[in-house]
């Protein structure tokens, strides 16, 4: 049961979160049909650090980018997604 440190709520058990997809599986709305096929069906599956999109569904509901080692489950980084814009 992983412990994920939500930037807003602190460390919470991973049952509160939903894993959405890897970041490279985010299909932009303006992708062409060829790009769409590639992103949907030809993806890397790394054994090691992996950038993933999670959501704190049963907590604050925010989307998070989680860098996780798929072999050891070490959570290298947890940050809000999209990244906060720099203040003007």
């Amino acid at each position: 049961m992983m412990l994920i440190a939500c930037p807003h709520c602190g460390p919470r058990a991973h049952v509160e979160f939903s894993y959405a997809r890897t970041m490279d599986a985010v299909l932009p709305l303006d992708a062409t049909p060829a790009e769409a096929s590639h992103i949907l069906y030809q993806r890397e599956n790394p054994r090691g650090p992996s950038d993933e999109l999670w959501r704190h569904t049963f907590g604050c509901g925010s989307w998070l980018r989680v860098r996780r080692n798929t072999a050891t489950h070490e959570l290298i980084e947890v940050a809000p997604w999209p990244p906060a814009k720099a203040a003007p």
Binding site: S18, A20, V26, P28, L29, L53, R55, T57, G61, S62, W63, W81, P82
Partner: peptide, 13 residues
């Protein structure tokens, strides 16, 4: 509901 949140926050923030 999850999909709407995904479109709203990730695809078209």
């Amino acid at each position: 509901a999850a999909h709407l949140s995904y479109v709203r926050r990730v695809l078209a923030p």
